[in-house]
Design a protein around this nucleic acid. Structure first.
Lengths: 253, 253
DNA sequence: TCATAAGTATCAAATAATGATACTTCAATC
DNA sequence: GATTGAAGTATCATTATTTGATACTTATGA
């Protein structure tokens, strides 16, 4: 184990958490050996941690394949999170209302370090699975939600973000030029919304508006995803934008 | 710490997990002292665990109040869970379809020990917050979903459940008589659906149908909640039940 | 069938967690 | 605004617990 200065740091617990985080969308179940590979821990340590997590109900274990999987307990943790975050209960009814009225996919995104995380998602029939489930994280600079939040932040913070936050190219259309993103944020600051086209997925247009708190700053955004095959920007601005501004504005500060 | 026989059991990790589980819908943030009270651990241990969990991004800490809260990481874990459970991706499009068509709250429930857990929820405007968010656990015997699943299980399993699983009285109408529940399960076995009225909440009717796997057994159910003020059982059976059976039946086995 | 990898069990060594205690900061009350 | 008790933080000697090497067993597939 690396030298951990602080005597309050409990290495064993941190190791256990690494096993939990070893699971993601492309690692839905892991064997002992795979856990060793993904966590970088000793085989013995992984054996003990996995045993303990299983014993405590945090990992499911297939007796046949001996592979470990996330358990229902991971959803219970999400349940506790939902109650703990006051924004969720304020935003949910507004999003439901919007979703029912327009039938388009609508999400609540929150800033989470240099990423955004989707904390509420109301999918429609056409929505891809990855875009339907909560907890997804995306680099903030590459999303309409992230940009429209940044548009409410101080000049210093925006500069820092533009210089340091990560950018990941997900489609041929992904803008990786930080200058261009800076312009987009400036535009969002002026317009009060941000639109991206095919940044994370081709043929997907995203429209995001900020959820502004009392101090004028946004740490969250409401975002709509539509297909570029059925919408163009003009129609999006005409039909969806006003309602989306109402939705975000209606979330109690 | 109690004597833990198995040398593979890592007590420190188990203790850390207790901090996470100390949070729930009525404990959305906890101070150090409250964590001590709720976990039953030593003050020193809680201090170290909380520090570590915070350091690892699993707990948010308000610098002003010094209280701990669940972090976004708890949603990320849910994201990993969603990918890991193959039922989710199969059920989601069907539930969305139903939700759009009927505009009523629809859920996917799965058995989780002697409880059911809601793993997908598509709320409508009238849905209460607690009924809108995933991860909620309810005693299986008290829910239409739990009963309709049990209806597909072996006689021995049902007997065992009826004798041992917990029952919690949530409303004046909650049925706590295990005989009556046995009858209800028998009825569900015959009908292929289960209806409860005001069991968890007054003025709420639940209709559940099983998601049956190849072996004829159900570990999941699709469930609709409607207000008893706008629906009666007859209307529910006439208008909703056929579509709900289609929805559940359409989930690929 | 054999060979090899994966998973499981054991144990001596010593690191890292423990929990008692002392110190500091906060917040409430007079 | 000073006083007081509770909550939070820091420290450290003790020792229980984790550690990680190794041997053993069970799977897998060539």
């Amino acid at each position: 184990m690396e030298k951990k200065q602080n005597p309050l740091f409990v290495g064993t617990l941190a190791k256990g958490l690494r096993l939990l985080r070893a699971f993601d969308e492309s690692h839905v179940s892991l064997s002992l050996a795979e856990l060793v590979a993904r966590t970088g821990l000793e085989k013995s340590a992984v054996q003990r941690m996995a045993h303990t997590l299983h014993h405590e109900g945090m990992l499911e274990r297939d007796p046949g394949t001996r592979r470990y999987r996330p358990s229902h307990a991971w959803l219970e943790l999400a349940y506790a999170y939902y109650w703990s975050d006051p924004l969720i209960s304020r935003a949910l009814p507004k999003l439901v209302e919007f979703s029912r009225a327009y039938g388009e996919t609508v999400n609540l995104a929150q800033i989470s370090g240099d990423h955004i995380i989707y904390s509420l998602r109301l999918p429609n029939q056409r929505t891809q699975f990855a875009a339907s489930i909560v907890g997804r994280r995306l680099p903030a600079l590459g999303t309409a939600s992230g940009r429209v939040m940044l548009a409410t932040w101080s000049k210093e913070e925006v500069t820092h973000a533009l210089e340091n936050w990560p950018i990941r190219s997900a489609t041929p259309k992904t803008i990786t030029d930080r200058e261009a993103i800076a312009e987009d944020i400036a535009r969002a600051k002026n317009d009060g919304y941000s639109i991206t086209d095919g940044q994370m997925m081709l043929n997907e247009i995203s429209l995001a508006v900020p959820v502004i708190s009392i101090d004028g700053r946004a740490n969250a955004a409401v975002q709509v995803s539509v297909s570029s095959l059925t919408y163009d920007e003009a129609r999006l601005k005409g039909e969806i934008l006003p309602a989306l501004l109402d939705t975000a504005g209606g979330i109690p500060g």
